[in-house]
């Protein structure tokens, strides 16, 4: 198995998503609140994982723009669950050596008077392995 196929299987297994269920309606991208921040949009995540085109996703800033609001999961008529694919690719990216998006050293300067700890733990969980 080449690296491309390995990555694809890994993402599908980790997410539990079957991207071939997608019927290309685009409702995920229609409902996404982070659409404009993303270089690859939710429907593209589904289609690119389906065709095994994972590398561009791994290197994309889009991974860190998804809000995990699950709107795409709830509104997808085919029950594809695109957000789970974004999550699986993001984990594949940040689990690589030195690929943490955020480190403990970043935290002190984020602490402001009104910042709830919830913000810091959530961001830390999303951006750090």
């Amino acid at each position: 198995m080449n690296n491309k196929e390995y990555l694809q299987e890994e993402i599908i297994r980790r997410s539990g998503v079957n991207p071939s269920k997608c019927m290309r309606c685009g409702k995920c991208s229609a409902t996404c609140p982070a659409y404009d921040e993303m270089e690859y949009h939710p429907h593209q995540f589904v289609n690119m994982v389906e065709s095994g085109d994972i590398e561009p996703l791994l290197n994309s800033e889009s991974l860190y723009k998804c809000l995990s609001c699950f709107a795409c999961i709830d509104r997808c008529p085919r029950n594809v669950e695109p957000a789970k694919l974004v999550e699986a690719v993001r984990l594949t990216a940040i689990r690589q050596q030195g690929a943490n998006r955020m480190t403990a050293n970043d935290v002190p300067q984020m602490i402001e008077e009104d910042v709830p700890p919830q913000l810091l733990v959530s961001a830390f969980r999303k951006y750090t392995k």
């Binding site: 609140p33 723009k65 809000l67 609001c69 951006y127």
Partner: peptide
Amino acid sequence: NECCGGYISVESPESAKRN
């Protein structure tokens, strides 16, 4: 029932602001 931006205000505050 739409998202406020959540933890994204760390990464892109403008996104959270827009939402």
